[in-house]
């Protein structure tokens, strides 16, 4: 049996909000360590890897491994019915037909209970080996989101160029071009405002702006985003959860 209680529904709300526009169907794999998901978007360009460790829950137990096949749009409809500050408990039997979601108001005696039908989802599992990266950028997630939104107004592609202590986001469009350069910066009082660049080799990669604009829907999850890049390899965008992560592996664009 699975029983996982979040102190606040807001965490799962944000996670589902970040994923629902990229993937329609997901298997949520529940083990004693927590809940994990691996899913690929419909255009087979973006891979999402979610891990909500048991530590992200107030209480968590899962006696046997359970797979919950969930339709994200339906899950989102139910999740939206709960308040962000409600306690949220996920309950499923060992061979479940449904996932139960229980929202409890902390101040009042109000309990809302929903049941979501499960689906059989046939999904390939990709093995992600430990990847080597040439550059790692830690930066404020809101800053990264703004850059992705701004650059998308110019072009469908966003070029990321990293040299020494700066990252250049470059966009070449039909009617014009634009770029934003950010440099390493340490804010001792507000560490979440800092930018850290670790570079082994210079980077020049191009990504689809559409996918980056899907990834930045994770911004409310964490104040910082970690971007890991390697030549001719997928980029890794990581948002930390209280215990766990939401990661996006995005395949680059190449010159044809």
């Amino acid at each position: 049996m699975l029983e996982g209680k979040f102190d606040e529904a807001s965490l799962l709300k944000k996670v589902i909000d970040a994923m629902k526009d990229s993937v329609k169907l997901c298997n949520f794999n529940c083990t004693e360590n927590g809940i994990s998901v691996q899913a690929i978007d419909d255009s087979r360009v973006l891979l999402i890897s979610l891990l909500i460790e048991a530590g992200s829950f107030e209480d968590y137990r899962c006696d046997r491994n359970i797979v919950l096949g969930l339709e994200m749009e339906s899950l989102n409809k139910i999740i939206k019915n709960g308040n962000a500050s409600d306690m949220l408990t996920l309950v499923a039997e060992d061979s479940p037909d449904a996932l139960n979601l229980i929202f409890e108001d902390k101040r009042r005696d109000r309990i809302a209970e929903y049941s979501l039908k499960l689906m059989d989802i046939d999904q390939d599992f990709l093995k992600i080996e430990d990847m080597k990266f040439d550059a790692v950028v830690n930066m404020p997630s809101a800053e990264f989101a703004k850059i992705c939104r701004d650059m998308k107004t110019l072009s469908e592609s966003l070029q990321i160029i990293i040299t020494k202590d700066s990252v250049k986001f470059n966009s070449e469009g039909d009617f014009g071009s634009g770029s934003v350069v950010i440099k390493s910066f340490t804010d001792l009082e507000k560490t979440e405002e800092s930018v850290r660049i670790t570079l082994e080799k210079p980077i020049n990669l191009t990504f689809g702006a559409k996918y980056l604009n899907d990834i930045i829907k994770s911004t409310p999850l964490a104040s910082q985003v970690t971007i890991k890049l390697c030549d001719k390899q997928p980029a890794l965008f990581e948002y930390q959860l209280p215990s766990g992560y939401l990661r996006f592996y995005l395949a680059p664009k190449f010159e044809d």
Binding site: R44, F125, L126, Y249, F254, E255
Partner: peptide
Amino acid sequence: KEKQAGIESFFFSG
């Protein structure tokens, strides 16, 4: 012209 790569070609099916 730029071409978008697929993600699956970078990882192993397991």
